[in-house]
Nucleic acid binder design. Structure first.
Lengths: 372, 372
DNA sequence: TAGTTTTTTTTGAACGATCAAGTCAGCCGG
DNA sequence: CCGGCTGACTTGATCGTTCAAAAAAAACTA
């Protein structure tokens, strides 16, 4: 009976490899081998040792193993602020998926939250110096990103979610979603509904993600022989911004009957602009967002949006990172996955049938994919 | 020059305490003391050693220190599925705040994603056996929750976010948000706008969080001498559910002019119900949600909602958990923090002024807080 | 059976830190 | 001049694992 009602903490210390060894009548190393290199044991011994391990509920100490092998089984990942509206929600979903994927490979995820890339490098530095992680997942890559080079200089292992925008010959692995393919698909979808004047609401030039999604729209419009003049507007992300851009475009002599948007926030902005002039989304005007953020399925009309295959991304990231850690990897991998369109109420048949029939439509169903 | 263009990984191994010691002309232990017990060194020596530490960029190896001290500096936390609509978003925000708070105390957060409480216990078991974490943060407590007792039995340290609902004498620390106080405040706010028939849309009885928020509404209504009969409806969480409940209540002979809702999902449901019968939220009917989820500020009308002080919660959780780890803590702490009302368009002056003036209103401004 | 190879198991030595106990000055009081 | 005391630093042991090499046991070979 312990004095003072202390928690029963160190009453039974967790079993060590030595205890298992004694109980099974073998040496430490044999127990270690039973777990790490079973083929080295005689079947009979193996069975006995595994039995004892199970009986005592033994698991190797993380610290001890990590000290010896210099591997931690931990992946570091920055927790990005969930800016709903923008690319919001996607990164939260990614983290979930990453944890899942990592755990099923015996890894864990160490999450940290910082405000700037510089602070992030500070955390990288700390974690690397302490040998607290094996590698990193880098999210939200952008033009002029200093993080990849810093990591490369340190000889650290990592995989980026997002392409190294603006870098000629990237020296690191990345996994990304093919935004261009997404916006292409959106154009195809809208054209299939009879729309011919399909506008694009995008981000200011120079934003990698924004440019990618823009090019997809442009390529699809060209391929189908649809006009693009006066149908592009680009600015910073946000509902207000999207609304302003949409209003401007709708005031033109030949307004679009549909919008493909670089984000759900822009799409919601466009929806608001339409509402303000009495147009109903999905009936009088069709709108497609990007990222399928939580709001998409809640607002009215429910918003059609391009959903990123986050689980697939996470799976690939972990796969690539692990092969990078094993040293199996000779040269960096590049993986591009396709998003898919979630069709909801905000997209419908084109109501203004005036010109649509006269426009030639070539290559309606094409699905050329630039993925790896 | 290394063959095959290998990454410059093990070129310069990270400095160990021994290297620092040699370079500074002292022993290992002195270096260790410089960092952990500076008062033991002569100022002169201290300066020299710290200089060398800085020069070499030395940080103690996480594994080695953890092996010796049996402390990891890591806190485990389950990543809950972000069910937007329900209590959604709050837990994502909490995780961010937790990482922040932990890091500023020199701790890190290990995130893992599981689907059920049983699986969560499995992860706890694994992490404890491997000695991979010092403690846990337990979110989403509920009636009949088996996790706290399991953890207590293991002698594990943890702090719950959420009260141990239905437990007489909880033997563990917890931090929670005072839901009752929140709904009380919502009632006060609405009454201040002239509303007298204020309905409550809640969760089915037996849900701790739901009951708490319900009681707050009820108490405030009683305190103000407002009628409650026929103004309560409770069911499972969700937009559809909220809509159905609101419709039912609005069909009654004396319909409410305002709703206090247990969640934003319910509130959105109520908003939809109102829209369907031509009532404008914020003008013809007022609605308050709970949790201030991302959608709240995006939908139209923008939804007034009770925001949980997530940063404060995270701060407290870390504070309590650390004192629990230090053994400073003799008995479990209970901390209750107040949410605050974010006023947006969905709440406005009561338009039907028929009866409101005749109802007596006692104790309008009271703010009794049951917090610790 | 002895010699050789192969398989199986054990023994010492790390990994890099901290704890506990040591040494070695210098100081003080008697 | 000696014993005790304090402050500043050092030395050995230890945490629990895995690696590398040695030893023992088993299995072939001739």
């Amino acid at each position: 009976m312990r004095q003072g009602g202390d928690y029963a903490r160190d009453a039974n210390k967790r079993p060590t490899i030595e205890m298992v060894a004694q109980r099974a009548g073998v040496s430490r190393q044999t127990v270690s081998n039973a777990a790490n290199a079973p083929h080295r044991l005689r079947p009979e011994t193996l069975k006995r040792v595994l039995g004892t391990i199970d009986e005592l509920g033994y698991r190797p100490s993380h610290a001890a193993r990590s000290l010896r092998t210099r591997a931690t089984g931990v992946i570091g990942c920055r927790l990005l602020p969930s800016n709903y509206g923008g690319t919001g929600g996607v990164l939260d979903r990614l983290l979930h998926a990453l944890c899942d994927a990592a755990r099923s490979s015996g890894y864990n995820v160490l999450a940290f939250s910082v405000d700037t890339d510089d602070e992030e490098i500070g955390v990288f530095d700390d974690l690397l110096r302490r040998n607290a992680v094996d590698g990193f997942v880098l999210a939200n890559t952008h033009h002029g990103d200093v993080r990849p080079n810093w990591l490369l200089d340190q000889g650290a292992r990592f995989v980026a979610f997002g392409r190294p925008w603006g870098v000629e010959h990237p020296r690191h692995s990345w996994v990304d979603v093919d935004g261009a393919r997404g916006t292409s698909e959106a154009v195809n979808h809208l054209a299939g509904l009879g729309h011919t004047r399909i506008g694009f609401l995008g981000l200011g030039e120079g934003n990698g993600v924004g440019d990618d999604r823009y090019h997809g729209w442009q390529r699809a419009m060209d391929d189908m022989g649809l006009p693009v003049k006066g149908l592009v507007a680009r600015a910073e992300d946000g509902i207000a911004s999207g609304k302003a851009l949409a209003e401007q475009m709708m005031d033109a002599p030949q307004p679009p009957t549909a919008f493909v948007c670089v984000s759900d926030a822009m799409a919601i902005g466009a929806l608001r602009a339409a509402e303000d002039r009495g147009l109903a989304g999905g009936r009088d005007i069709s709108i497609v967002g990007f990222d399928d953020s939580p709001v998409a399925s809640v607002i009215r009309p429910r918003l059609s949006s391009l959903r990123q295959p986050v689980e697939g991304v996470a799976h690939k990231i972990v796969e690539v990172l692990l092969s990078e850690l094993n040293g199996t990897q000779r040269r960096p991998s590049r993986v591009l996955l396709a998003p898919w369109l979630v069709r909801r109420e905000s997209t419908g048949e084109c109501s203004s049938v005036s010109v649509s029939a006269t426009i030639p439509q070539k290559g309606r169903q094409q699905r050329k994919s630039p993925s790896t």
